[in-house]
């Protein structure tokens, strides 16, 4: 699998997701600076977690305008896979790769803990390693993970099976309809607030996220 992690000013989960991908695929992903304007031929682009631009203005808003994002958009339009975690999810929404927006957590506080989630859709390159309805535990770490979209959009996402993960009676941020992660129409772009790269190594307290990386390696290679 040819994968690349985009590094934005303020990204800080770029190394973590690269380590998880490396472990699953045996190959280290390329690290690409946000100021570049072209991407090599890739099977997977990762928008990592962190605090791009310090979360200033709105989370993900300034990064969504980075030079590389044009190339990421073209990659997605060609049917390329994009895995957008946490701050990456926020950017993907701001960049229009996914519908909706991420708002401040309802409790108004940053939250870092494991949350219980349910796998809602297993028909994607990211979630194929799970059983439908499987309950998994993955950490979140964010201040703005409160997914919001209007009712029509939410109905459409649910109707078309584009909700990938839902919090399982454990919503840490007040997101609409307990949404933790969503897929694009072609199911090739996944945005999610929880961090599977933090749950792919038993020493870190759980391996429920590992199936995502093995699924990506199997499906996208």
């Amino acid at each position: 699998m040819k994968a690349a992690v985009i590094v934005f000013p303020g990204s800080n989960c770029d190394r973590d997701v690269a380590v998880a991908l490396h472990q699953a695929s045996g190959t280290a992903p390329a690290m690409i600076w946000h100021g570049d304007s072209t991407l090599p031929d890739l099977d997977l682009v990762v928008l990592p977690g962190g605090f791009s631009y310090g979360d200033y203005l709105r989370v993900g808003a300034i990064a969504a305008l980075s030079p590389i994002m044009q190339a990421v958009r073209r990659h997605a339009e060609r049917g390329g896979a994009v895995f957008a975690v946490c701050n990456g999810f926020q950017m993907a929404c701001e960049a229009g790769l996914l519908p909706g927006a991420l708002m401040s957590n309802a409790a108004g506080k940053y939250v870092c803990r494991h949350v219980a989630m349910r796998v809602e859709n297993t028909d994607s390159p990211f979630t194929g390693g799970y059983d439908a309805g499987q309950r998994i535990s993955i950490p979140v770490a964010h201040h703005d993970g409160n997914y919001f979209a209007d009712d029509a959009t939410l109905d459409r996402l649910e109707g078309e099976g584009l909700v990938a993960f839902r919090y399982d009676n454990d919503n840490p941020n007040g997101s609409c309809r307990d949404i933790a992660g969503i897929l694009s129409d072609n199911r090739r772009v996944l945005g999610m607030m929880p961090h599977p790269e933090r749950a792919a190594d038993a020493a870190l307290g759980g391996t429920d996220g590992a199936a995502m990386f093995t699924s990506m390696v199997e499906t996208l290679s």
Binding site: L57, L65, P99, G100
Partner: peptide, 9 residues
Amino acid sequence: ERLLANTVI
């Protein structure tokens, strides 16, 4: 439209 506001919210 491009930056200062996110018109979704």
